[in-house]
Amino acid sequence: MLQLQTYLLLLLTGIMWGGVYLLMAFGLNLIYGVMKVVNLAHGDFIVVAGLLAVTLYGAFQAGPVLAIPLATLLFLLVGLAVYRGLLAHVDTTGSQGELRTLLITFGLSSIISNIALLIWGGQYQSVPFFQSAVRLGPLFLPESLIVSSLVAFVLAFAVQFWLTRTRWGRLVRATAQSELGAASCGLNTGRIRLLTFALGAAMAGAAGALTVVLIPVQAASGGFVTVQAFTLIALGGLGNYLGALLAAILLGVIEVSSSYFLGASAASAMIYLIFILVLIVRPQGLLGHRGRI
């Protein structure tokens, strides 16, 4: 009985952590899906949004309810500015295009994280909100985890709905599948790319402001967050939404259970190992072309 309880707890927390990872990877996935740009500053957006939430909490005792809309709005503007100021000026097509965008976003990441270091310093910080535990039958789950993963799954379905059922979503998908085709149908693909990048950045902002209640952040942890998010979306098949959801749950369960059975450092090795194996066996991601936007 105790055994079963443990497994159940591991599975449930695994799925929830998966939701949190998904939330943190969502903006990256959207931007890659449409623009074929890996935004290496993604993690830094999340971290800065988290640190902003910490400051808001320190100044006004304001919780995520205030921090999330503020961070979302702020990073929407940041996304607009980054696209207009930087990405619109480089040629992102061709064999060198990918490298160029990586380099631009890498430079941006370095700038943002080091400015954050000057402002907030290097210590880990968190927002003490949703600190109670919820009793679920014989199981105890931290409230922050439940809230974060619920928001994550709701957001996942909202985005899926937006992409498949609305006019703007259709335009975004058309641009994602063939930019040339979309442009020749009279779509302003530049505007759609702008919108996508801003939206992806805003998602990072929202994710950061929320998950800081669960994961303490410091100015330099953005790089790690980016890697984690990228691992997830690569596992799911870049730009693939269903795949990302599946990969998130898989990664969450694997990480939680392997850190329970094998210890923390083995857990992170496990993630990379699975990542490489999946790449070799199924380089197109778990689901391949199915489920791509």
């Binding site: 930087l86 040629d91 060198q96 631009i104 941006l108 370095s110 080091n114």
Partner: peptide, 20 residues
């Protein structure tokens, strides 16, 4: 020493945009 990384990052941006 504090701003080194920021300046390097800005340098990258300039290099990529002006000198692909």
């Amino acid at each position: 020493p504090q701003q080194q990384q920021i300046i390097l990052g800005a340098l990258i941006l300039i290099a990529v945009i002006w000198m692909p």
